Computed example of a mutant assay.
Amino acid sequence: MTGRRRLYWQVGITLAVLVAAVGMLASHRATLDSGTDQLAAADGEWLLLACLAAMATWVCAAVAQQGAVAERLPRGRLVAAQFAACAANHLLPAGAGATVVNLRFLTRCGLSTRRSATALAVKAAVGGIVRCVLGVALLVTSPGTVRLSARVPHVLLLLPVAVGVVVLAVAVSGRLRRAAGRAFADVRDVHRVRARACALWGGSVAFALLHAGVVVAVVHALGLALPTGRVVMAYLVASGAAALLPTPGGLGSLDAALALALTAAGVPGQTAISAVLGYRLLTGWLPMAPGLLVLGLLVRRSAL
């Protein structure tokens, strides 16, 4: 009953966010139409480069997933599973689609449910760490990439507080302490082999940079010579903000956050919408149908 209630809450939140997103788009229909026209007249070579970067993200996701487990996974089916997970991720809230597909795939490869869930958690944690490190590295190497407001230091102070709360909860709860101990044991096993650690971290870094590269290429295709670091920072900030809202594939949340971040980075409003549409087209909408076909094929062959 609890699981069903949680599902109802997730679906309700998802529908609320989607309705809000549709309402926002309807109120800015003229701007949306102009953005679509700009995207239709964009540079084809830059769009091709963006398409190749989007396709490479599935390979990087497969490399990172292989690095998160000790067992050797079948390469072809692993890449196909990431492609199918990308499509499923746009149908269920809060990344649940990708989690379900990958969890099923790992258990079919012989891993226990606990170890499969731990591997997915390790991959997700490394992905979040990588995005934070990339953002900090951009701020350090290019201080002019973003304009920090006076509130940013106060916001940054909340990070150690949040970490402290999590550590305290783990220390107090015996069940959480045992789960954390098993997770740390699996993490140590992964990092004992250098090749696995390189695959996990390298694949996660490449995955984040390639997604940012899709946005960079789309922005250039629209004829804007914006500094690459500024666009990458806009994507990192937007993807981090979108993770807080449980919408399918970040639909609505990532779109709004990315449009706002690009506008703050110096992209005109209509062009920012065009860039978001191009990013969505290449990473979500175009791969949707073939991804679902691959998903059905994997299920039929008992790979999921």
Rank of each mutant, 00 (worst) to 15 (best):
S173M: 02
L120I: 03
T107H: 11
L139M: 09
R178H: 06
G135M: 03
A70P: 09
P153T: 00
R72T: 06
A119S: 15
T113Q: 14
E71W: 11
V63K: 00
A180M: 13
A96K: 04
A64S: 02
V167Q: 14
T113I: 09
P74C: 09
V130T: 03
E71N: 13
S149E: 12
V122C: 08
H154R: 08
A169T: 09
F105G: 05
A119G: 10
A124E: 15
L168Q: 07
R182Q: 12
N89P: 04
R115D: 13
G127A: 08
C86L: 15
L106M: 13
A84V: 01
A121R: 08
A62R: 01
R72P: 05
G97D: 02
P160W: 03
A179Q: 13
A180H: 12
T118C: 06
R131W: 10
A162D: 02
T141F: 07
K123I: 11
V146M: 14
A88L: 15
V79T: 03
L73K: 11
A119N: 10
W58Y: 15
L134R: 01
T141N: 06
L168H: 05
A183W: 11
V161K: 02
R75E: 13
G76T: 00
G181N: 12
V146T: 13
L78T: 04
A137I: 02
T107I: 03
G128P: 06
L103I: 00
V130R: 00
A171W: 03
V126E: 00
Q82W: 07
A119R: 12
L91A: 12
T118A: 14
R147E: 14
A162T: 04
A81Y: 03
G67T: 02
A125P: 08
T118P: 01
L111W: 04
L92A: 06
V69T: 15
Q66W: 04
A180E: 08
A70L: 11
V146D: 10
L138E: 00
R178G: 04
R182L: 14
A98M: 02
A87P: 00
A88S: 15
G128D: 05
R182D: 15
A94N: 14
A121P: 06
A94Q: 10
G127E: 01
L156R: 07
G164W: 05
A88Y: 14
A87Y: 03
V79P: 00
A70F: 09
F105R: 12
R177C: 04
T107F: 08
T118S: 13
W58D: 07
V63C: 07
R115H: 09
L106I: 03
R178P: 00
V130E: 03
F83S: 11
G97P: 00
A70K: 09
Q82S: 15
G174V: 12
A179G: 08
A88K: 13
L156C: 01
L134S: 06
V161G: 11
A171H: 07
Q65N: 14
V133W: 02
L156M: 05
L120S: 03
S142F: 12
A169K: 07
R175N: 14
S173K: 00
V100E: 12
T113W: 11
V126P: 00
R114W: 01
